[in-house]
Design a protein around this nucleic acid. Structure first.
Lengths: 259, 259
DNA sequence: ACATCTATATCGCCC
DNA sequence: GGGCGATGTAGATGT
């Protein structure tokens, strides 16, 4: 049984551990004194120094210096790794990538630490300004949609699904709003159209339709014009700020009431 | 004396090692089961899983999952670190940044490996462009040589070898260009002279000669003046930037078809 | 596969 | 410090 971590391993130990790691597509980590060559779209050399090298399960590799957010050398996922000893005193890690054809060679003359183990990471990652939260932000500040817009209802059930936000404009026209967190495509526009048709059938009134999101995708622009619908730019960032402001306002009110 | 690396440390050991590391602004590395919260321009949560955390000397921090080129959470350089134990079973690393105000909190419930040590890395990093690529860049943007310069051919065969670039200036004088990636020495100047002589014999016309490269070495300067030749400064970095514009390919294909 | 757009982009340069 | 541009950008999404 191989140990997961070895401090100051011999090159033979390191070669064995890394070879095994690459074969099993397990992540690995090497800290040591190394030199790095890159050749591909551009080419680079990095002279001797102590760095942290991370080899990942998906075939990506990162070389990190002791400072700086960005890796000094890297290879995105999908490349092939090799480990060998060009001489008794050197261990080489080779990361090869096709399309574009690029190679990163890392030569170690001293290894301080080597670690290799399966890492069990199935935890979900959430970026918090969801479509739901964007809706909350818009309800909290309806004037972000347009001046004098008044929301009547949200997540209103109609034939094909739920209307995100539903309200009236300054001329008392009904407005149906479809919110998207990501750039708006043709599908979102057609979804809005279906909701509008349902609301029009239900009320018998003229209905304005608006898609709200960070930006418009190529095809959506023309489709909007064709269907005579509108677009209002609203970024998750802006919504995040609105929600933050509301949270602090509520906190202040709460503190006042407790006083 | 603290060890640089500890496998399966207790939280007390880890807190001590990391506290020491942060105080001395030394890089540190933690591998373990953790949960991550981010709050700032946006906000995010990452649920439990095994990851690699790198804390750097300049106040940057990276949280890497076992796959993917990019860190799942991070903080750029210049933030403040804290380590503590909110409970006996949890170790927290806190990375705080002002402007924009952002916080990353990492909670570990198990630490597989911890490493902390000064890393000695003073090695230079060079981003290269080959002589060939410099030629491509010059063909792509001939005005970099001088205004109104028009290339006619490249790698043209003459008696002693291949002329890098061959063209005409705004007064229709022939121009022979010799490109070097490294500082230009006497040898490169003499090489250019031989090419010029060959072209002059071939065409019977007056020929201007120019060496192009990042800089001139001592002896080359005087030799250039003696032979009445010219030097144009052009760095590999500049060429690299031009090549990124990607106009090169089209021009070369055009010239190939015209040759 | 290729083009286009986003990013907690980061990083550098200039003002 | 703010604005703009480059990045071996990487990564996602639509064609």
């Amino acid at each position: 049984m191989l140990k997961a971590a070895i401090e100051n391993p011999t090159f033979t130990e390191a070669t064995e551990l890394l070879g095994n790691s690459f074969a099993k597509h397990e992540p690995a980590l090497v800290i040591g004194n190394c030199r790095v060559d890159y050749e591909g779209r551009a080419s680079s050399t990095l002279e001797w120094g102590e760095r942290i090298v991370i080899v990942k399960a998906d075939g990506s590799i990162l070389v990190h210096r002791p400072t700086g957010y960005e890796p000094v050398n890297w290879q995105p996922q999908g490349c092939l790794f090799q480990v060998d000893m060009p001489s008794e005193r050197v261990l080489r890690i080779r990361a090869f990538r096709r399309q574009p054809r690029e190679i990163v060679n890392i030569y170690f003359d001293r290894i301080r630490l080597i670690f290799s183990s399966r890492l069990d990471d199935s935890g979900e990652f959430y970026l918090h300004v969801s479509e739901e939260q964007m809706k909350d932000a818009l309800l909290s500040r309806p004037e972000m949609l347009e001046p004098h817009f008044k929301p009547i209802d949200y997540e209103r059930k109609v034939e094909p699904g739920f209307v995100d936000v539903y309200g009236v404009d300054k001329d008392r026209n009904l407005v149906v709003v479809e919110i998207k967190r990501n750039p708006i495509g043709r599908d979102a526009v057609l979804q809005l159209k279906r909701y509008m048709d349902a609301i029009r059938r239900e009320t018998g009134q003229f209905v304005r339709g608006m898609v709200v999101g960070p930006s418009l995708r190529k095809g959506a622009q023309t489709l909007l014009a064709t269907l005579n619908l509108e677009f209002k730019q609203l970024s998750p960032k802006k919504c995040f700020e609105v929600l933050q402001a509301r949270k602090t306002r509520k906190l202040i009110e709460f503190m006042k009431s407790e006083r």
